[in-house]
Structure formats: structure tokens, C-alpha cells
Design a binder for these strands. Structure first.
Lengths: 89, 89
DNA sequence: AAGGTATATTCAATAGTTCGCATATGTGCA
DNA sequence: TGCACATATGCGAACTATTGAATATACCTT
């Protein structure tokens, strides 16, 4: 039926296709982590984590929710959630 | 249990994450196309298709089978097949 | 052997990604 | 207000990916 938007799929897949981003996304499957938490789990620097989050936010893959001084991140894109479940279940 | 090999997952996902490669991989889900066929479906040049196939072959994602003068490609990596099914079903 | 068809490889130019470092912004609390 | 903590942004250098053009290889047929 509908023609597939390969460019868009590729953009999403590319956003997922990075070890650090996979780590923090997998973490978001189980909880709603703040940036500090991701830093320690993914063993990357704060600016680096923030850069990856910025990329994911700009594509609408994740979204942040404030809890006081913390930014708690969660997966927003349901297709991404399904792909990650397939990958990590 | 097992620690997840994020680097390896990222490598696989990155290989998939390209519009032309997604197109030819989706084609391979349905048939066992030769390079000519991929050229016309993906609207890319022969060398370009071959380059993408080389990348996918080197990662063990696809494999070719000769049929006379043609190289018929199919998806070899079952995890990739599942991810593509999830993506395109 | 020669020519044709199918596919692969190499190289170089360009474009895009990643990351460290420095710095900026925003919020809560004394 | 001022400090501390949490997070974001900007920039540049190093690295990686993508592609076109040219060329190479391999098989089939005559």
C-alpha cells in the first residue's frame, strides 16, 4: 500500500545505532533515568551523554520530564520501543 | 544474565541504517534478488549497490548464491531478519 | 579465444559523526 | 543575591561513511 519512507526509517535506525545511545535507550526501557544515572551506567562524560540525548530529542525519539532539578528521560517513539524490545528481549 | 554486546549491536544497526541498504534488505525479505534487480528497485548505480552489498556481506548480514551468471542475495543474519520484519511488517 | 553480461574493487573527493574541552543555562536553597 | 548542582551548548579536531568514476574480475556463449 503506502510507499515506505526509507529515508525516515534510516534516520531513526541511525540514531539508535551507537553503543552509548543503545545503552541509555536500553536503560530507559526499564526506568526513567536522569542524566547522572546515564553517565554512570554508560560510562561516558556528562557533555557526551547530553549530546547523545540532544540528538535523540531532536528526532522525537525520547523526551525529558523535569523532576525538581533532574531531567528524567523516557522513550517517546513507540516504534523505537518495539525495535529495542526486539533487540534486547 | 549475559552482558549485552552493545558495540556489536551498534555495528549491525548501523549497517542497516541507510536508505539504500534498507531498500535492498526489504527486497531480500520477499525474494532472492540479483544485483541488477536491486539496482532498478533502489534506483542506484551498479557500483553503489555492490559497495553496499560488500559492507553487508562483510558483517555476515547477507550472503550471495550463484545462479549461473547471477548473484542472488539473501539475508543470512536471523536477528536482522527479525528487526526488518518488525520495521516493515 | 573473444565478446558480452554481471558483479566487484579501488581511489579520491566530499560530507557527516563523534568526542573532548570550555562554557553556558537553569533551578533550588542558604 | 550567590553558590552549588544538574544539564545543555558551541567549537574544533580526528575519524568514518558515502559516492562517482574508472577499472578489474568472473562466468557464459559462440
Amino acid at each position: 500500500m503506502s510507499t515506505i519512507d526509507y529515508d525516515n526509517y534510516a534516520r531513526i535506525m541511525k540514531a539508535i545505532a551507537h553503543p552509548t545511545r543503545l545503552k541509555i535507550l536500553n536503560l530507559m526501557r526499564k526506568e526513567c533515568p536522569c542524566v547522572k544515572k546515564m553517565e554512570s551506567v554508560a560510562e561516558a562524560s556528562q557533555p557526551n551523554i547530553s549530546q547523545h540525548l540532544s540528538l535523540l530529542r531532536n528526532l522525537g525519539i525520547v523526551e525529558a520530564e523535569r523532576e525538581g532539578n533532574l531531567h528524567c528521560y523516557q522513550i517517546k517513539d513507540q516504534n523505537v520501543k518495539i525495535i529495542l524490545d526486539t533487540l534486547f528481549e
